[in-house]
Amino acid sequence: MEHSTIDQMVKKWIVDAADRPANPRIQEITVRLVADLCKAIEDLDISQTEFWKGMEFLQEAGKRHELGLIVPGLGLERFLDDRADEADAKAGITGGTQRCIEGPLYVAGAPESVGFARMDDGTEVDKTEPMFIQGTVYGEDGKPIANAKVEAWHANTLGSYSYFDKTQSPFNLRRTIFTDSDGRFTFQSIMPNGYGCPPDGSTQAWLDQLGRHGNRPAHVHFFVTAPGHRKLTTQFNMEGDEYLWTDFAFANHESLVPPIKRISDPAEMAKRGVNKPFALIDFDFHVVKEKAAAPTGDVDRIRAAA
């Protein structure tokens, strides 16, 4: 079937068949997606069995709440970030910390503090090394921003996240810090592990068919917000991780791999209140001002809240 014929058919189904006021934007997107899908079915000679098996797969993935994994696993979330970077550049927005995908595991409502927060509940202190993340939030003018909001979340030593993993205490490894008067923040936590997609799940089943692993390197997620500035969504990956440059979610950027200092000096350990060597990561955030002509840095999507 010719593509032009498909376009006419889809217009008839979606546009001409409308018998009441339609949402123009939803109608436009639907026409494009349905037409492109029909063209793919035609061009690739997708059988009815293949089509319905695909629908069954998506239905099962939805039941398993894995669409949030499939989207980054296929590169779609990275693509959305790349488009946002391109839009920022066209609007003259430059110089901020590199954005990076949010992923599906944020939970709203983490405990708040000023300047310092301990993220872990102490249950895994014997399984890994302590970790401190410290830095400053800067504005476009290079000056520190006091009272900026820095939200952080990461996995435990098993690669699991609290709230979704009911064996963990509420808000374990999730905290919100408002920067001090000098724009500084410090998170005390434990070194996380990366995670893999559920081996019996929908995402890994698709990745297996594509000849790909489903692993992420160890990483820490952040939201950074400040009045008059664009929201920053980012994360950094741990240097040296075996999946650092083969992240299944494509969330790897050279600027988001900070060096890790291993501190074993007894005086520094005592100063930090830990009894064994610890990892220290210095990481500053640079946020940019809101600009009317630019797309918003905030993304409206359903997120978990405890």
Rank of each mutant, 00 (worst) to 15 (best):
Q8N: 15
K12W: 14
V15I: 14
R20N: 12
I26F: 07
A35I: 03
D36H: 14
A40W: 11
I41P: 05
I41Q: 08
I46A: 11
M55E: 14
F57Q: 06
F57I: 05
Q59G: 14
A61N: 07
H65L: 11
L67W: 13
L69A: 15
L74F: 11
G75C: 09
E77W: 00
R78H: 13
D81I: 08
R83F: 04
A84N: 04
E86M: 09
E86L: 09
A89H: 08
G92I: 00
G95Q: 05
Q98D: 12
C100T: 03
I101R: 08
D120C: 05
D121M: 10
G122M: 07
E124I: 01
P130T: 00
F132Q: 05
G135F: 03
V137G: 03
V150C: 01
A155N: 09
G159C: 04
D165A: 14
P170I: 09
N172Y: 05
R175W: 03
F178A: 07
T179V: 09
F185N: 02
G196T: 02
P198F: 01
D200V: 02
A205K: 15
G214R: 03
V220I: 14
F223H: 13
T233S: 10
N237K: 09
D247F: 01
I260R: 08
K261N: 10
S264C: 04
V287D: 01
V288H: 04
K289N: 05
I302D: 12
A306G: 12
